[in-house]
């Protein structure tokens, strides 16, 4: 009997380790609710990508339900979600604002020409300061902001069809009501 118990030890050690790993994995960035959700979206005043002399500010969008999409021409996952955004902008009445993150203006413009432009406006965050304010982990990320300028939802990583139809769209409809 004593021997049986001894032979169980490796298994028990493994279970303890596995328990920690489960907790560790759940501390994944995606699982951490952003501290910004339910809070006012950080203010910004940034130049328009297509007209750098024009400064776009967050208050320009007050009273609208809008999406802030963080993108960059150097980001591969952005290519993945981009067609979805283009399609979404065509078929739905939603304001999508692009935050062109740590990018060169020429690259960004070329990218929009090539893949289509779903944004009412894209602002240039060349040094990534606004990205820091928004707690951007990586590109792409998308924020859903309501009429009062409060962040209601944050998508880390590329937007998927599923996220769009099951989470973002219902939320937009609800907020617009």
């Amino acid at each position: 009997m004593k021997k049986k118990l001894l032979l169980m030890i490796p298994l028990l050690v493994f279970f303890v380790l596995a328990g920690f790993f489960i907790v560790g994995l759940n501390r994944n960035p995606r699982e951490i609710p952003s501290p910004l959700i339910g809070k006012a979206a950080p203010a910004f005043a940034l130049p328009d990508l297509n007209a750098p002399e024009k400064i776009v500010e967050i208050k320009d969008f007050k009273g609208q339900v809008w999406l802030l999409n963080v993108w960059a021409s150097w980001c591969v996952s952005c290519r993945e979600e981009h067609p979805l955004l283009v399609e979404f902008a065509k078929t739905h009445d939603v304001t999508i604002v692009g935050l062109n993150y740590k990018d060169k203006a020429a690259d960004g413009k070329a990218w929009l020409r090539q893949f289509g432009n779903p944004y009412v406006v894209s602002v240039m965050d060349a040094d990534g300061r606004v990205g820091i304010d928004y707690g951007v982990y990586g590109v792409p990320e998308t924020f859903l902001i309501d009429r009062q300028g409060v962040i209601q939802y944050k998508q880390i990583g590329a937007i998927t069809d599923q996220a769009l139809s099951e989470i973002i769209l219902p939320k937009i409809k609800e907020l617009k009501r």
Partner: peptide
């Protein structure tokens, strides 16, 4: 690398089956 939490979960279940299973057999 954890761009996809499903991956992490899958790996964990896989590890659990392989390691846990063999240690159970061992016991």
């Amino acid at each position: 690398f954890a761009t996809d939490p499903r991956r992490g979960m899958f790996i964990l279940v896989l590890l659990g089956l392989v390691i846990g299973g063999s240690l159970l057999l061992f016991a």
